[in-house]
């Protein structure tokens, strides 16, 4: 109710709030409701309240959107776990992939040479304790169980 403490400014503010937030005080910001709610419900603003109330009724009567039944499925289908989209692992193992791509067409006889080279490399590694970077990354992932590593973010994900 407007009382002796309601000033013209208070009434103007309550009217402004009715125009902005409507006649349902639950939609008003809490502080505004506490300060001007009673004034908004007073007889002085009866017409403004009725107009705001009518407008709220119209808004309630507008078309209510119904989510299409398959939309959630389509959205879920668009989900790609980071491991699937990340190029980090494949980039990290690019050296190995390149290696295997040119190993495949080699005739069987060549594998004997490769094996010999492998033994030689193992001997070098054994002697120096170092692995080429690609092999180190691969060995780390093998040992730690990590399936992917995003080089951009530094994030790692568990395999699914």
């Amino acid at each position: 109710m407007t009382g002796p403490h309601s000033t013209t400014d208070d009434i103007a503010e309550a009217k402004r709030l009715l125009e902005i937030y409507g006649s349902d005080l639950n939609r008003w910001p809490a502080d505004a409701r506490a300060r001007w709610g009673d004034i908004a419900m007073s007889a002085a603003l009866e017409k403004d309240r009725a107009d705001a109330d009518a407008l709220d009724g119209f808004l309630r009567a507008a078309t209510a959107p119904k989510t299409p039944h398959d939309l959630k499925n389509r959205i879920e289908a668009g989900y790609r776990p980071p491991a699937e989209k990340a190029g980090g692992a494949s980039r990290g193992l690019a050296g190995l992939s390149a290696l295997s791509s040119w190993i495949r067409p080699l005739p069987a006889g060549a594998f004997a040479s490769m094996a010999a080279l492998g033994f030689a490399a193992a001997a070098v590694v054994d002697a120096t304790g170092d692995l080429p970077p690609e092999y180190e990354a691969y060995a780390y992932m093998e040992n730690s169980g990590l399936a992917a590593f995003d080089e951009d973010t530094g994030a790692t994900w568990d395999a699914e």
Binding site: K72, I75, E76, Y79, P81, P82, A83, E84, W157, E160
Partner: peptide, 12 residues
């Protein structure tokens, strides 16, 4: 974000 499909499904 870590690849948990179930979590993604809950968000959807």
């Amino acid at each position: 974000g870590r690849g948990d499909r179930r979590a993604a499904s809950i968000l959807v």
